[in-house]
Simulated assay, not measured.
Amino acid sequence: MTITKENCVVGIEYEVKEAGTTEVVDSNKGGEPLEFIIGMGQIIPGLENALVGMSKDESGDILVKAADAYGEVNPEAEQTLPKEQFEGIDLAEGMTLYGQGEHGQTVQVTVKSFNDDEVTIDFNHPLAGKDLMFSVKVLSAREATEDEMATGVVGGQSHGGGHCGSGCGCH
């Protein structure tokens, strides 16, 4: 089953490091597979594009440049706020905080610096500006159901043995 550009539900096991380092920044090894639908923007574009053409049980190391991962660092994504807005929080440089954005979405920020009056936070993703090295294994590849394509959610009614019949977009 080869992964195609669209309509494929893919399950992978992965480990990711910042390129050139040995520190693992994220992994699902030993846990549940990461499942997503190719072509729906559910994972970073560089990894998704590199998976196209791979098959079930295939493994590989994939280098994803920053521009195709979490983007370049945007210096305008920093904001300095009055320290009173962080009352009750034991601040530390580099810590991650979660808040609510303008439209009710969860927003992740990193504390860059602080003093007695102000706190500078960074809205850039912590991996922005970094090239990433993924070690992946394709655990599954199958055609997405109509429900999965409509909702973008993996796990509709037909998982049926993990293989597809005729007309499948995953070969």
Rank of each mutant, 00 (worst) to 15 (best):
E6Q: 14
G39E: 00
I121K: 00
K56T: 12
G104C: 11
E93M: 08
G41Q: 11
C164V: 05
K65H: 12
T4I: 00
G88T: 05
K65P: 03
S113Y: 04
T96D: 01
D57C: 06
K29M: 12
A69H: 08
P45S: 13
C164G: 15
E102R: 07
V111H: 05
S59L: 06
P126M: 12
M95P: 02
E146T: 11
L34M: 07
G99K: 06
Y70I: 05
K5E: 14
V52A: 11
G60H: 13
D57Y: 14
F123L: 15
G129R: 06
K65N: 13
V138C: 03
E78L: 13
D117Q: 12
I43C: 02
E78D: 02
G46C: 13
S55V: 01
K56C: 08
V111L: 04
P126R: 10
H125T: 04
T96H: 05
A77I: 09
Y14W: 06
H171V: 10
S27D: 11
G71S: 09
V138P: 00
L91N: 06
L47M: 06
N74W: 07
K137A: 10
D61N: 13
D26W: 07
A67N: 14
N28P: 03
G39H: 07
E15P: 02
S135N: 13
N115D: 15
E35K: 14
I12E: 00
D117P: 00
E35I: 02
A66E: 14
V9N: 01
F36R: 00
G53F: 01
I121L: 04
S135W: 02
Q79D: 13
L132V: 07
E32L: 15
E15D: 12
G11C: 04
G169Q: 09
T110Q: 15
H171Q: 14
K17S: 10
G39L: 08
